[in-house]
Design a protein around this nucleic acid. Structure first.
Lengths: 187, 187
DNA sequence: ACCCCATCTTGTCAATGGAAAGATAGGGTG
DNA sequence: CACCCTATCTTTCCATTGACAAGATGGGGT
């Protein structure tokens, strides 16, 4: 499929994949549409047709990310701790998607596509968070759920930022399970 | 001091302040050195003298951020919950600093200045986290401290990303205290 | 009075994002 | 089977940007 024809075949998908790789490598700041086009073997204006502009490309990436996160949370089953670990695993495995998703300034957050995907992910997340935690003071269910989300999100963000790499060394997923267990499983 | 002399007087500070404002407004992506220079009333090459390049400017901003965070944590006193709230307050009040600090890809993380400032902030943070929490299963002190940090960091990140704005409305600090209390104060 | 050096300016270049207008081809319709 | 139609991609062009080089300015110390 590395044909040199006029039509690429699946430029949209190729660009999304290349974008994720580039962002995971150099960060969103160094992203260059022209460089993506070069690597895909198309002209520098080809991406514009599929995504409009740079923000449009990142919008599509964010939408894809929300869809994948929704799937990952659904697949995690009903256990809250497993869902939290799945959240962290998603952030690490799909670092570029995760980082873009939570920087709405990078894309068009009101785009219908990304909004729909986000709502689906929110529902999956809400379902996971609704599973009764051990037995904390759940007189404040909203705060409990926000805390669980914040804990998983914060661990993922700190890990991705490299802030934890000084002390920790091993498997992030095992560490995540230990850390999330501090809140998710009360004795 | 709005003199029109050859020398600005305090270009470095003016640029840092303008940078923080610009990032808080439009995000790091839309940051333009030439625009900053225009607003400061200097030539487009003036910033280069003080910061080298764009990454250098953000390095200085990150260093300033770490210094301010260290001060904020120190000023919070010995209470863990208060420290957590101070962490969140810092993130919200100095959004641009916070966002840059935890995106090492934006600056020169190995710069001596920022490294020193980060170490000082790490010490302040470590001190705050060392205060015994209520009475959780602290057989795993490392996990407990990481959980506390992750919780505060995650709440701040989610708030800044706008992910919480759909459900919540009121004062972020009060909400933060409620959420952080889920882990920090065990009954 | 003089020089030194931090600070700032002017001029230049390659790269980028984006817009406009045209080329190409593959598929459906008559 | 010829034709058109539309999605896809290219070419051309422009303003903006980051970075660099070389020069101008002037304050402070000797």
């Amino acid at each position: 499929m590395t044909e040199r024809s006029y039509h690429h075949g699946d430029l949209r998908r190729a660009l999304l994949t290349a974008t994720a790789a580039a962002i995971a490598d150099k960060g969103p700041m160094a992203l260059s549409l022209r460089d993506l086009a070069r690597r895909a073997g198309v002209s520098h204006a080809a991406p514009a047709h599929h995504f409009g502009d740079k923000a449009g490309l990142l919008t599509a990436l964010a939408a894809e990310g929300y869809a994948m996160l929704a799937d990952a949370l659904s697949a995690a089953g009903g256990d809250l701790l497993d869902s939290g670990v799945a959240y962290v695993r998603f952030a690490i495995e799909h670092r570029a998607h995760f980082e873009v998703m939570f920087q709405p300034g990078l894309y068009h957050p009101d785009d219908p596509g990304v909004a729909a995907a986000r709502e689906r992910a929110d529902r999956s997340l809400s379902t996971a968070l609704s599973t009764r935690p051990g037995h904390p003071r759940d007189e404040d269910a909203e705060a409990t759920q926000l805390a669980a989300w914040s804990l998983a999100h914060g661990f993922a963000a700190l890990w991705l930022s490299g802030a934890l790499s000084t002390t920790t060394e091993g498997d992030p997923e095992a560490l995540a399970r230990r850390v999330l267990g501090q809140l998710f499983q009360q004795p």
